[in-house]
Computed example of a mutant assay.
Amino acid sequence: MAHPVDPSGLGRVLADTMSALARHTGTGEDEQATPEGHGAAADGLIRVTAGPPGRVTGLTLDPRLMRMPSETLAQEIGAAVNAALTDLQEQVTAAVSGQVDLGSLGEQLRRIQDDAGRQFTAFTDALVEAQDRLSRQGGR
């Protein structure tokens, strides 16, 4: 005789999966602050802040820059923006590589997969047994 199917077991497997993913993607309760990149140019007279997904979130220009030729000013602003985006990219890369332990995540997902396999096998066995009982009852 097949083991009775615990319908809450499937829900538990899904909950375990979501929990494991939340722990390894930073979407859990202990979510970290949004990374921010900083760049500067023209001896600090231009300051830029950048945030995900690669957008300039702040630009500060010292009034003394207005005496600078426009081509030079444009180049310096471009340099500050690029420095801020590079800083942001480095921070995001460091945060992701520090948060995700792929070996641990893989092991957790294998355990979840094994549990799900057992639950689905039990569910299938119960369906087959029910079908056999219905066939025997119909053949009376």
Rank of each mutant, 00 (worst) to 15 (best):
L45N: 06
L61R: 04
P4D: 09
V56E: 05
S19R: 15
L21A: 09
I112C: 02
Q91D: 02
D114C: 01
P63Y: 05
L10W: 14
V128I: 11
P35L: 00
Q99S: 10
H24F: 09
G51D: 04
G39R: 03
Q108N: 02
G117V: 00
V13W: 10
E107L: 04
V96I: 08
D43T: 08
V48Y: 02
G39A: 01
T34K: 08
R55G: 07
E29C: 10
V128A: 13
T86H: 12
T27H: 10
L10G: 11
R133W: 10
A80V: 01
A79G: 09
P35S: 02
R118N: 07
L61C: 03
T72I: 09
D114G: 04
A94R: 09
D115Q: 07
A84Q: 01
L127D: 13
G106F: 02
T86P: 05
V56Y: 05
H3G: 12
A40R: 10
R110A: 05
G9D: 10
V56A: 04
D43F: 11
P7H: 10
D62W: 05
T57S: 08
A94V: 02
M18A: 15
V56M: 03
A42N: 02
D132T: 13
E29V: 09
A116S: 09
Q75L: 13
L127T: 09
E71C: 09
G37W: 02
G54L: 01
S8T: 15
V96A: 10
T93P: 06
L45V: 03
S19M: 14
I77W: 04
S70N: 15
A20Q: 03
A22M: 08
G117N: 09
S135D: 15
G117R: 10
L61H: 01
Q91Y: 01
D16V: 02
E31C: 11
T72K: 12
L21V: 07
A42I: 00
I77R: 09
A80W: 04
L14N: 14
G26C: 05
M18S: 15
Q89H: 08
T25W: 09
G37P: 04
L109Q: 00
L134T: 13
A50F: 02
G39F: 05
P35Y: 04
Q131I: 15
G117H: 05
A41Y: 02
T49Q: 12
E90A: 12
L59I: 01
F120H: 14
P69C: 02
V92Q: 07
A33D: 06
G39M: 00
T57L: 04
P69V: 00
V128L: 12
V100N: 02
G78L: 10
V48A: 03
S135I: 14
